[in-house]
Design a binder for these strands. Structure first.
Length: 236
DNA sequence: GCGACAG
DNA sequence: ATCTTGTCGC
């Protein structure tokens, strides 16, 4: 079936009703400093003879050892266009199944996802989709602002802070927002603990591996998890 | 109409 | 995000 932007928006509004209600009731599943295992999720794309493929990476980061300890790479042809605000529908095709596998295999405390969570037009960014779909805490980390204005270090919409604006050690700016089951302050504090470069370690490493995988892994039409390339040397 | 617009 | 060469700077 062809992708329908209007139906996707309807779906997000329905999800928002549930997620925001839980957030009001302070249904918190994760608190800062309780993390044992963090899984960084990122997606890279590659055009190959008329078909566009998505390379999804799930990287397991050990909070105690402060290093990456495992990773998975998954590929599949993408079937949804990129539309601001609807990024989740494009990336979930590969991140959804991959996140489920990551939970079964690693039992992570929280997911770090590239992209916004709460700081989204309907409060349902990619990070929220991942967390809600898997009922696992998640935090969104974006490199560009999508909505709102910046006031006192936060992205604000209608007077409500939706994301923390953080200046990274490399001088760039990132926007950290709650995905699912996490408060804004806990999301901010947690990301800060792993911020050594432009992105928190679990995401920086997942990003490096997803890009490197494009020339080391043959993509498949349908969703498939490949043997993880021995790339943990990419800064880990 | 104009500007904005995650990855 | 991706397409792309060299190049300026820490």
């Amino acid at each position: 079936m062809k992708f329908s932007a209007s139906r996707a928006i309807m779906a997000q509004k329905l999800m928002a009703r549930i997620v925001l209600k839980e957030l009001e009731k302070k249904t918190v599943l994760f608190k800062a400093s309780t993390e044992k295992a963090i899984v960084g999720l990122d997606v890279a794309y590659r055009r190959l003879s008329g078909t566009e493929y998505a390379y999804g990476v799930a990287l397991l980061y050990d909070a105690a050892k402060k290093s990456a300890v495992d990773c998975m790479v998954a590929t599949r042809a993408v079937c949804v266009p990129y539309i601001p605000g609807l990024l989740a529908f494009r990336e979930m095709a590969v991140l959804g199944p991959l996140a489920v596998k990551a939970i079964e295999k690693w039992r992570p405390s929280v997911f770090f996802v590239d992209g916004h969570g709460l700081s989204h037009p309907r409060r349902i960014g990619i990070a929220t989709h991942v967390g809600f779909a898997t009922r696992t805490p998640s935090i969104g980390v974006a490199k560009k602002k999508l909505v709102g204005v910046i006031r006192n270090g936060y992205v604000v919409v209608d007077g409500e802070p939706l994301a923390a604006v953080i200046r990274t050690p490399t001088g760039s700016t990132i926007y950290v927002s709650p995905g699912y089951g996490v408060t804004l302050e806990d999301a901010r504090r947690t990301v800060l603990k792993y911020l050594k470069h432009k992105l928190p370690e679990p995401l920086r490493l997942a990003d490096a591996i997803s890009k490197a995988s494009k020339k080391l892994v043959e993509p498949s039409r349908d969703f498939k998890i490949h043997p993880c390339p021995r790339l943990l040397e990419v800064g880990a």
